Amino acid sequence: MALNTPQITPTKKITVRAIGEELPRGDYQRCPQCDMLFSLPEINSHQSAYCPRCQAKIRDGRDWSLTRLAAMAFTMLLLMPFAWGEPLLHIWLLGIRIDANVMQGIWQMTKQGDAITGSMVFFCVIGAPLILVTSIAYLWFGNRLGMNLRPVLLMLERLKEWVMLDIYLVGIGVASIKVQDYAHIQAGVGLFSFVALVILTTVTLSHLNVEELWERFYPQRPATRRDEKLRVCLGCHFTGYPDQRGRCPRCHIPLRLRRRHSLQKCWAALLASIVLLLPANLLPISIIYLNGGRQEDTILSGIMSLASSNIAVAGIVFIASILVPFTKVIVMFTLLLSIHFKCQQGLRTRILLLRMVTWIGRWSMLDLFVISLTMSLINRDQILAFTMGPAAFYFGAAVILTILAVEWLDSRLLWDAHESGNARFDD
């Protein structure tokens, strides 16, 4: 018995066209964080690309023209004298008006014999932002004059995390709450300039795509075929072959399989920071003279006294001054041990922890910024005066060393310790 099946006739004509040209192939790229070699397709503007294995951002879609970056830099340069030299806060102490600005706080630190601690604050609040705007201006002028731009481009990517104007702005709020127990506070004209400078700096850093600047100024022929001998440069993120001198053909720094002496430098910085954190938390970090009496505060006791007036601000200072430094030390110690013992479990967790400490590390400088600003506000000789204690130097040095330890660690070593050939990683 035959089955009668109805015929289905399409209502619209289906047209099949042959592909007349070869589909576009992607360029081969190595991930600078996990060293995976993959094919990167062509990316349009405002599109980002991520590593298929570790999800690290390979290409950032946010990109401004150099002219727009230069305009932002010149605007920031105009704001800087007002943000640093004009009063941020006014207080009335014992019937006398006192003005506080950024430069005055750094000068008070240096004047009291601790120039190293003052230079830490100076670099993060004044030096690094000033280098940022002058570097962008150098790129703008240098591109037109045919100057060598490689050193500036190499420095810009590392400079971003040292620009800490946003953290200093939080420190202004913390210092205001600490001082309000002794005097009446009012915002100064410099505060508005400083807030504007923070906003412009944040926007500029978020749109400063150094890798795209490398592509514009020093374009290189990408690798179009897969080759395990391809290496990625950690300076400019170019994937290719080393030249005859073993250097990256684009930025001219040595092109090595792994960062040289990464573990040794990381261990040295980490152990030194552990040693410095002990006096930083045991010795007094601030000293207040009130009517001839002397009151010393460690980091913890200062947080407890701050909690009596504002528990939320005390929580912020606790996280930045105690929780973050010790968390960074514990995480980095764990990561280094996992590399030495070739741990194969929990790779995803370790990668996330490394990215976390990379982002939060700079916030530990908050305590030094609060001390710097408070020193310029309260300084009335023996009637009422505020000065920093010996722990300030140890704390600042420990924070900087932990930042350097994270920067010096080559994250690809975590993958080397893991089993080879993993296309995915999980716990």
Rank of each mutant, 00 (worst) to 15 (best):
I8R: 11
K12P: 11
K13S: 11
T15E: 09
A18R: 14
E21P: 13
L23M: 11
G26M: 12
P32R: 10
D35N: 13
D35T: 05
L37C: 13
F38T: 11
F38S: 07
P41W: 06
E42F: 07
S45F: 12
Y50I: 15
C54R: 00
Q55K: 11
Q55I: 12
R59I: 08
D60G: 13
D63I: 15
W64V: 15
L66E: 15
T67F: 14
L69W: 13
A70R: 09
A71P: 01
A73N: 12
L77H: 06
L78T: 09
L78E: 02
W84Q: 08
W84V: 07
H90C: 07
A100E: 08
N101T: 10
N101L: 01
V102T: 09
V102N: 03
M103K: 07
Q104P: 02
Q104R: 04
W107F: 15
Q108T: 12
G113R: 03
S119N: 02
V121M: 08
C124N: 03
V125T: 04
I126Q: 04
V133D: 00
I136A: 06
Y138R: 01
F141E: 01
G142C: 10
N143Y: 15
P151M: 02
L154R: 01
M155N: 15
E157Y: 08
E161P: 15
M164I: 03
L165R: 01
I167V: 11
I167K: 10
G171W: 00
K178M: 00
Q180T: 15
Q180G: 08
A183L: 03
H184L: 06
G190H: 03
F192T: 13
I199C: 14
T201P: 05
T204Q: 09
H207M: 15
N209D: 05
L213F: 04
W214D: 01
E215V: 14
E215A: 10
P222H: 07
L230D: 06
V232A: 07
L234T: 07
C236R: 02
G240C: 05
D243Y: 04
R245L: 05
C248S: 00
C248I: 00
P249G: 05
C251T: 00
C251G: 00
H252P: 01
I253M: 02
L255I: 06
R256V: 08
L257N: 10
Q264N: 01
C266K: 02
L271N: 06
V275Y: 04
L282P: 04
S286D: 00
I288C: 02
Y289G: 02
L290C: 15
L290K: 01
D297Y: 03
D297L: 04
L300K: 02
S301I: 07
M304Y: 08
L306K: 00
S309L: 01
N310E: 15
A312D: 04
A312I: 12
A314D: 00
L323A: 04
L323T: 15
T334H: 11
L335H: 08
L335S: 05
L337W: 14
S338P: 14
F341A: 09
K342L: 09
C343N: 14
Q344L: 10
G346H: 13
R350F: 14
R350K: 14
L353V: 14
L354R: 09
L354W: 06
R355A: 15
M356H: 10
I360R: 00
V370I: 07
S376A: 14
L377C: 04
D381C: 02
Q382E: 02
L384Q: 01
F386I: 07
T387Q: 04
A391Y: 04
A392V: 03
F395I: 06
G396Y: 04
V399M: 10
L401W: 03
E407Y: 10
D410C: 00
L413E: 10
L414R: 00
L414E: 06
L414S: 09
L414F: 08
A417R: 06
G421T: 14
R424N: 15
F425I: 15
F425A: 15
D427A: 14
D427T: 15
